[in-house]
Nucleic acid binder design. Sequence first.
DNA 1: TAGATTGTTAATCGATTAACAATC
DNA 2: TAGATTGTTAATCGATTAACAATC
Lengths: 218, 218
Amino acid sequence: MEGTNTIRSIPAQTLKRLPTYLSFLRSDVCADSPFVSAGKLAAALDRTEIQVRKDLAAVSTTGGRPKVGFAREALIRDIEDFLGLRNVDSAILAGVGGFGGALLGYNGFQNCGITIVAAFDDDPALAGSSLHGTHILGMDKLTSLCKRLHIHIGVLCVENALAQQTADKMIAGGVLAIWNFTDVTLQTPEGVAVRTENLTDSLTLLLHELLQRMRSEA
Amino acid sequence: MEGTNTIRSIPAQTLKRLPTYLSFLRSDVCADSPFVSAGKLAAALDRTEIQVRKDLAAVSTTGGRPKVGFAREALIRDIEDFLGLRNVDSAILAGVGGFGGALLGYNGFQNCGITIVAAFDDDPALAGSSLHGTHILGMDKLTSLCKRLHIHIGVLCVENALAQQTADKMIAGGVLAIWNFTDVTLQTPEGVAVRTENLTDSLTLLLHELLQRMRSEA
DNA sequence: TAGATTGTTAATCGATTAACAATC
DNA sequence: TAGATTGTTAATCGATTAACAATC
């Protein structure tokens, strides 16, 4: 119960919003002043001021100054620390078709301190080539390479039918976090973190919203 | 207050889970039997049985049969109806670089009944060409084409810096639903539905989870 | 009948919002 | 001082879970 090393725990919903705050704080829109108020963040991110204040209170170490706001730089550092960023890490990517190929050219990895050290694909025509500066290897090399280089992050962009087995290969290689771009709900052991970007589900929800609006308009 | 035409309203969190149920029900794993139990869904999708039962109760018109489960086909139809799918609709896509290009080859659109009728890009080298069977036009044509063809859905894949202004063009053309693949929080009028796939935020949360697990392991 | 499964009502839990106090 | 903004405590709201009844 004692000790300062305990990991602070914050509401799950607050956690989800932190990256949004972070990217806004880092953006040009904020760069003009060394201070940002909760109200300004709220307006830009389309949330209530009270919610933003509470969220920031949960992670800010220095707190804000009445009438002034939060020191931008300090707040950025607090959020980064809380999220555990500022760690450079390596990752591999499986499935270079369509999406996977596009992701190899995605800046976001660098912004998050991630380097894609290799990509894998079943297509023999691709093995040996490289894309956006990343080498492509056969899928059979995935597990061993992850083991050898102690890779903990895998990006999964294969077809749905291959999703589970490819995830299994990653896990066998020691991967602990999977960024899942397939539409499959992966079955993984306890220790493995999975984040699924299910585009089909997401599009479905957008269409639902559209339809509702068109209905209520009629 | 009276009348059967009122739109049923369900919890927001239930709504979010419906597409997941739907895609599982449609999948091969379910095809062997005409019935599915809440327990089976729960196990496959990593949720509690009680939650699934409550969610299904909210949308199922016929209800389930004790000891048997829900009729698969009927349940699929109920969810589709509720979500307002089974409407064919047209969409346009802006920004054919990286992601946008990959999305043009994405099956999910057809599965959701969406046809991408045109793509737009600022790069003059691309205008006039086509990719994955979709014509690419200059960005200046976006608004007028949307108006002319009564397009209501826009997919936004341009660079962050161009995000807002491109969204504005879509809205000027009558687009009512934007699928946003940029990292920008768009400012849009009331009537417009926006769904943002902020990959950077999502990756950030995955890294956070990874770090927490590695910490607690140590 | 017994057992599996659905369906519903009540209890708990967590998140958001509101109200207000504190401070520069 | 007055006003803007933060910070905290209490009230409301919604979602999840638990308990149990209903049914094939």
